[in-house]
Design a protein around this nucleic acid. Structure first.
Length: 605
DNA sequence: CCCCCCCC
């Protein structure tokens, strides 16, 4: 079997010309830099006429070489490449070819030999004979030789003449690497972070970061300290800038969803100038969408891009972060797509507050974090996530059409659902029968659910006890019968104590009932009296005490429970604890009732 | 040189 190589393509390319998808043969490879994520390989390629050893493999293609796919003698089609001039110590400049995309036409094991008799390409061989080749290579080369070193002061100011930068040919973002520092990119700002400060063992400072893209790829850039001051106001989302002289380093994939092995840092020498000409050729935000039914197979904590129709949006919830004490606002959306999957996406802060769109918009998110709770996966927006409502993207238009033409009624599998079923966020009310059907409590961590129920019985007898007076310790004290009380937990005796409540009760709803336990705050809320007063009644007015527990019977509340299967004496039973109890907000309760009538009957109410 | 991103 013979293979036709693109004879003469190398000299066109090495002269800076354009050659679309040349077919070449790999004659050798060599590791030139680093190891692990920093590995970089050089290829010896041949077009049958010339061979050239300065083809570099973009690092995202390293696997092809390591796996043996790109073995010697392989015939390949170079689908995408850029060339770049490297300063060659003492000898002027040398052009290298960086391969960005490659297709293996025939594996080396099948070809088995060198095709033709290629001569080594040298800069010298690019003399007169090469000139016609370049001239023939229309349209104009995408990368002209020799952007001369910029003699710009390393400052950014309004009077920086962007034409100096723009007059030079720019480099594709995908070709940037730490091994090549003479470049200018023309890139659009997809997003920009707020200024953040840090203060740790290594020092303190401030920074902001931005995500840049062009039609070849994308990259994260960070400006620290004085660069943060210098560039923060200038950099604006959606604008296009010429940027040069940044430091490149290996990106930590844990913290970015950018499709780039590198990220860049602004330095004292960095030059940025806004592009004042037409920049419509520079694309905006780039997504790499994962179909919803594939999300469950991804690892927790990975960042991914998603697009889906917002099938439902829960109410805004306010909560206090346990670690920081900060007041948080969140909203859970359920997104669906034509893969048959559904997933819960949590938005935070302003984005959660401002979202109240009931028109089932298409939502695209870049860099949402996959998290897991109670055995089910869901997505959470981060400060760095980019959210777009009804974006003008083919995928979004496709989903709009799908949803509006039957997709809305399609059977879906909610990947955020737990083994026993998803409660749709802690906001949804279910029934005891639902909780049983969903086998809530059967997992390792316990499950949470809310319902409207009635207190059918309260066990008054041991509802109040004398507890350790220490703030954090609520251990029941042992009466030493000598005026002192012993705490086994603190291992000491106290002359004083505080009262605490531990109320056992039955709660019923229309579908069933459940023995529950309410600790101090929840029990106080139900009884409508504080624990000190209840303790006083217990001590001095047993009739009033008993009366209190009688009066609360048959009162209704909105309960939030935590339930978990526990084993006592070889017998498994549900331990259900009241996490929160609220009086009924009838406006809200009626809204839920109407919604549920609508669902059950299929009739608009 | 950051890398926190929350809750049930």
């Amino acid at each position: 079997m013979s293979h036709k190589l693109s004879e003469g393509s190398l000299e066109v390319i090495m002269n800076g010309g354009v050659y679309d998808k040349p077919i070449m043969q790999v004659l050798g490879s060599k590791k030139i830099q680093g190891s692990g994520a920093n590995e970089r390989f050089r290829l010896l390629v041949s077009d049958g006429k010339h061979s050239h050893s300065f083809a570099m493999l973009a690092t995202q293609l390293n696997d092809k070489l390591i796996s043996g796919e790109l073995s010697d003698y392989s015939v390949v089609q170079i689908d995408r490449f850029v060339t770049s001039l490297l300063k060659n110590t003492g000898k002027g400049e040398k052009r290298v070819m960086i391969i960005l995309d490659i297709t293996i036409v025939c594996p080396g094991s099948e070809v088995g030999k060198k095709i033709g008799n290629p001569q080594t390409w040298t800069e010298e061989s690019s003399g007169a004979s090469a000139a016609p080749a370049q001239a023939a290579a229309a349209p104009a080369p995408s990368l002209r030789p020799a952007p001369k070193p910029m003699s710009l002061a390393p400052t950014v100011s309004a009077n920086l003449d962007s034409s100096i930068l723009s007059s030079q040919m720019t480099h594709p973002i995908a070709s940037l690497s730490p091994y090549q520092n003479k470049w200018v990119i023309k890139a659009r700002v997809m997003s920009k972070s707020d200024i953040r400060t840090w203060n740790n063992a290594r020092g303190e400072g401030k920074l902001f970061s931005m995500d840049l893209c062009d039609d070849s790829g994308e990259i994260r850039a960070t400006a620290f300290k004085s660069e943060c001051d210098r560039f923060y106001d200038m950099i604006q989302v959606d604008k296009v800038y010429y940027i040069s002289r940044c430091q490149l380093k290996t990106a930590n994939k844990q913290f970015t969803s950018m499709k780039n092995d590198y990220e860049m840092t602004f330095t004292a020498n960095t030059v940025v100038a806004e592009c004042m000409e037409d920049s419509s050729s520079v694309p905006s935000i780039k997504f790499d969408f994962v179909p919803i039914n594939e999300i469950a197979a991804k690892n927790v904590d990975t960042l991914l891009d998603i697009v889906g129709v917002c099938k439902s949006a829960a109410d805004l919830q306010e909560l206090t972060a346990r670690s920081t004490g900060k007041l948080l606002k969140k909203r859970e959306l359920t997104l669906v797509d034509n893969s048959g999957g559904a997933v819960v996406l949590t938005m935070w802060g302003k984005e959660a507050e401002n979202f109240n769109d009931n028109s089932n918009p298409v939502i695209a998110v870049k860099g949402a974090r996959l998290s897991e709770f109670n055995g089910s996966k869901s997505l959470s927006c981060l400060a760095s996530s980019m959210i777009r409502l009804n974006p003008d993207l083919p995928e979004a238009h496709k989903l709009r059409g799908w949803y509006d033409n039957g997709g809305a009624d399609m059977e879906i599998v909610n990947i955020s659902a737990r083994a026993g079923g998803y409660t749709g966020g802690s906001n949804e009310w279910i029934t005891f029968a639902d909780a049983e059907a969903r086998q809530l409590g059967s997992g390792d961590k316990g499950d949470y659910f809310s319902l409207l129920g009635v207190l059918t019985f309260t066990f008054a007898d041991n509802a109040v006890y004398k507890a350790c007076p220490q703030e954090q310790c609520n251990k029941k004290l042992v009466d030493q019968e000598n005026g002192l009380y012993r705490c086994e937990k603190c291992n000491r005796e106290y002359p004083n104590y505080k009262y605490r409540l531990l109320l056992s009760a039955n709660v019923s709803d229309a579908s069933g009932d459940q023995r529950i336990t309410a600790f101090n705050e929840a029990a106080e809320a139900m009884l409508g009296t504080n624990v000190a007063e209840i303790g006083r009644l217990f001590e001095y007015d047993k009739t009033a005490y008993t009366q209190l527990f009688e009066e609360v019977k048959f009162k209704s509340f909105v309960f939030k429970f935590r339930t978990k299967m526990e084993t006592y004496n070889d017998e498994a039973r549900l331990k259900t604890t009241v996490m929160n109890v609220q009086p009924i907000d009838y406006k809200d309760a009626n809204k839920r009732l109407i919604a549920s009538i609508k669902t059950i009957s299929g009739v608009e109410v």
